[in-house]
Simulated scan of single mutants.
Amino acid sequence: MNKPPLHSINVALGLRSYPVWVGSGLLDDPARWRPLLRGRHALVVSNTTVAPLYLPRVEAGLEGLHWSSFLLDDGEVHKSFANVGRVLDALGRLGATRDACVIALGGGVVGDLAGFSAACWMRGIDFIQMPTTLLAMVDSSVGGKTGVNLPVGKNLAGAFHQPRAVIADIDTLATLPAREYRAGLAEVVKGAAIGDEAFFVWLEQHADALAARDVETVLEAIARKVQYKAGVVARDETEQGERALLNFGHTFGHALETAGHYTSLLHGEAVAIGMLLAAQLSERSGMSEPGDTARLEQLLHALGLPLAIPPGMDTEQLLQWMRLDKKNTAGQLRLILWRGIGRAEIVGAVPEREVAATLDAAIANGRQVPAT
C-alpha cells in the first residue's frame, strides 16, 4: 500500500505563523520537527495510555537534548490546575530556560494542559503539538487555545498560546478506541456545519467510509477541517468575532460534560448532542428549517455519535452550567446558532425560556435514533 500523502497547512499569524503537518510516519521523522526546538531543554507531556505506545518514537528525535517526560493519568478529570503545577515543577527540575520547549504528545487534555503550562513557564515558552486522537488533530491542537477545567465549569482558566507546529501523525489513530474515534468525528462535522455546506455534503457522501476508518477518507477529512479552522484562526486569533462560531454546540456540550463530572460523556460526544440541541433551538426560534436539523441528526447517527441527553440530567442543572459559559455577556446567554447548514452565527440575549423549552423537549423525547 502506498504511503498516504502529506498535507501541509499554514496557520497564518505573521511572525507567529506555524505549520500543521498531517500524514503518516511523522513521529518517526525528527528531521522535520527537531529543528523547531530552539534550546537544549525539552519536556514531553503525555499520559499513561499514549506514552507506552508513542513516546519511544519521540525519544529518538530528542537525542542530545536535556529532556524528560511528565505523564498524566488518562481522562478529562486530570485537566486541572494541580497538574499544571506538577508540569511546572517538572520544568523546574529540568532546569528549563526560556528557549525550552514543551511537547504535547496525546489528545486534547494533554495538549490543553501542556500548552497552558508552556504559557505560564517564564511567561511563555515554546510548545509543539503532537496530537494522537482524531479530535485533537482536527480541533484542539490548532489555534492556540490552552487551559484547564474548574469544578464550576470546563476551560474557564486558560490562555491563547500558539504552538510552534502541529505534527498530526495519522498512524496513531490505529490504536485509538472506536468510541474516541467517533467522538473526533463530531468536531469534523462541526466545521462543515458552521461554515462549509459543500464539506457537509461530502461528509454525508462519505459517512460510511469515515465510520469504517478508510485511511484516505480520514486523511482528507482531517486536512479539510484543519484548513477551515486555520483560516478562521488567522482572521480572528483571540475570538473577538468569527472564531466564536467554532463553539457551535459547545455551550450545551460543556454543560453536559460538567453535569456528568467529565466522566459520562467524551468531549466530542457532548459536542454532537450540543450541536443537535443548537439546531433544535434554531429551528424553534424560526432561524432554520426542520430539514437542516434532520440532516445533521442523520449524519451524526451515521457516524455512530450519541444524540440524546444522558439520563439523570435535568434542564435547570444544565442551564446553571450554561450561565457560566465564556461567551455570555451582561448575564445573558450568547449562543452559536444557525440558519441552516453552513450558516452559523452568534446570537446574543437568547431567552432562557427558549433554551429551557429545547432542553425539556430533548429530555422528554430521549431519542436515540434520528427521525425518518
Rank of each mutant, 00 (worst) to 15 (best):
N2A: 14
N2T: 12
K3E: 15
N10K: 14
N10R: 15
A12P: 04
S17H: 03
L27W: 11
D29R: 15
R32S: 07
R34I: 07
R34N: 08
R34T: 06
P35H: 13
L36W: 14
V44Q: 01
V50M: 06
Y54W: 14
A60H: 13
A60T: 13
G64R: 03
S68Q: 06
L71Q: 12
H78G: 02
R93Q: 09
L105H: 02
G106F: 04
L113A: 07
F116W: 02
V138L: 06
S141V: 10
K145E: 03
P151Q: 04
G153P: 04
A159H: 12
Q162A: 08
A165M: 06
I170V: 14
D171Q: 06
P177T: 13
R179F: 12
A183Q: 08
L185A: 04
E187Q: 08
V189P: 02
K190I: 13
G191S: 15
L203A: 10
Q205I: 07
D208F: 12
A209M: 09
L210W: 11
A212D: 15
R213H: 12
V215N: 05
T217Q: 13
V218M: 09
R224L: 10
G231H: 11
A234I: 12
T238Y: 12
R243M: 06
R243L: 09
L245H: 04
L246I: 09
F252V: 01
F252P: 10
F252E: 07
L265M: 10
L266W: 08
H267D: 09
A270E: 07
A272Y: 02
I273D: 09
R284V: 00
S288F: 12
E289A: 15
T293A: 13
E297D: 12
H301D: 15
A302P: 13
L303Q: 08
M313L: 15
Q320T: 15
M322W: 01
N328D: 11
A330W: 11
G331P: 01
Q332R: 13
R334Q: 12
R339E: 12
R339T: 03
E345R: 06
A349K: 00
P351H: 00
I363F: 07
V369M: 14
